[in-house]
Design a protein around this nucleic acid. Structure first.
Lengths: 258, 258
DNA sequence: CTTGACTCTGCACGTTTTTGCACGTTACTG
DNA sequence: CAGTAACGTGCAAAAACGTGCAGAGTCAAG
């Protein structure tokens, strides 16, 4: 492994997780801590990160050139994002919802994947600029500040043009009886519309949403084809949602739908 | 195997994997490491990749985490952005083009301005998240990577919904006889459409564009109401464009149109 | 067909860079 | 304030490097 690769890895870890622990990385990469520390020292000297006891943190903590741009990337969300990204195959037309988990998905798409991504989040769109192979379509409309997605009648109308192969949708509530819910009415409408148009619908769900119910219905379980969860949460997900007819996809499994 | 083939192979490996390890390639191709190293050295000399200990990495690490893309903010562009931002009044419905100068405009909008901004650039939209008072509308469509704006038939069609009071448009060529031009056909179409729909049209123009002509026409001078230039460039602008019927707005002046 | 100029490739050899370990020091933790 | 973990530095082995050189192959002129 090249020194440059390690440094890139360290920086992206920092970006994804907000901090880096030298010991963990050394174990992960199978290298001595000394080597990692040396890398960290050099990166710190170049002003790419800030060295702290035990590891490193971003140079300007919580500084946001863009406000609330990425949000907190918990390891669980990263894991879900990776897993979901792996489901997308060349040639697919994919709808990507907004939200921090979807960002992780975008970030972990293969760099040269040849596919089309439709999104109503400028955030996601910016994230995908790096991916040369992708065609990116933005669904316009009024921008919701809080969630960084467009919504409203115009957005819904515009969505009518698309028939994605698969859509990845975030939600704030997943309940066996109450279905999939979210906390914002306008957002819920968009999600509903997308799911209706898509060949298959996959929910990105971190475990804190399990069993929760928010105010606005996004979908019933019968309309959902897949649920991407972190491996650690897969048992709980199976218990709660296993009998509802949607496939539960956690990171240890392979294969995709459709 | 020809040297040229190897080099192509190396570059495509780099493209696919983000890095190349000399040893691995030499083993893969059954050649000595020396040969691979020589190739890498030559490619590095030609600026096709960056040589590092152990192998090579892409010349420009596409690994620009997130905002990275804001572009270079020259003092002149900042000045133009400030000046143009000052033209926007409460209640206005404004269309903002993409581009680095427009970013500066967005950045210098009063933080609590109560207005509506329509834009086809996710970049601009993200920048405006900070501004609580603004309503932001995104115009959807296919995303052009290079300029970070949407374009295409869908974008044009969508624009039909709006009648902005004023639009701020960037361009790469401003010529007394040849009018306003830009270098990308699709972008030009969008700019034309916006100008047609807008109450007044203002061009954001840094001085290096003066006298230049690009390939695609955006507008004739008769359709342009204002030209925002930096103070230092205002004399030159007046000479070149003063007689063409559009107001030249430099930073020492006040007042806005309409 | 032969010859000579030229290029490409692999090897040898000395140099530089990287890496892991040892050891003394510094910073957290309870 | 003591114990532990992390740290930085010096050092030696290993890996990668660049250079010079010789043999093999190519091509065109003779």
């Amino acid at each position: 492994m090249l020194s440059h690769e390690r440094k890139t890895h360290l920086l992206s870890l920092l970006d994804e997780q907000g901090s880096v622990v030298a010991k963990d990385v050394s174990r992960e990469l199978g290298l001595s801590e000394d080597t990692i520390r040396r890398d960290l020292r050099e990166l710190a000297r170049d002003g790419r990160l800030k060295r702290v006891h035990g590891g490193a943190v971003p140079i300007a903590p919580a500084n946001a050139p863009f406000p609330g741009r990425v949000g907190i990337a918990t390891p669980e969300k990263v894991e879900i994002g990776k897993r979901a990204a792996a489901m997308i195959e060349p040639g697919h037309v994919v709808f990507l919802d907004g939200g921090t988990t979807a960002i992780q998905l975008a970030r972990h798409l293969p760099r040269h994947l040849d596919a089309t991504v439709i999104t109503h989040s400028p955030n996601i769109a910016m994230e995908l600029l790096n991916h040369q192979g992708l065609e990116v379509e933005i669904v316009g409309g009024r921008l919701l500040r809080h969630s960084i997605v467009t919504s409203g009648a115009a957005t819904i109308a515009w969505l009518g043009r698309y028939r994605p192969d698969i859509c990845f949708i975030g939600a704030t509530g997943l309940h066996p009886d109450q279905g999939i819910t979210t906390g914002e009415s306008e957002e819920a409408e968009v999600k509903r519309a997308v799911i209706e148009k898509s060949g298959s619908a996959v929910i990105l769900a971190s475990s804190e949403k399990f069993g929760a119910v928010s105010s606005f219905e996004v979908a019933r379980w019968t309309n959902i084809d897949g649920l991407v969860v972190a491996e650690e949460a897969s048992r709980k997900a199976a218990e709660l949602f296993g009998h509802l007819g949607c496939e539960i996809l956690s990171t240890n499994q392979t294969g995709s739908r459709r």
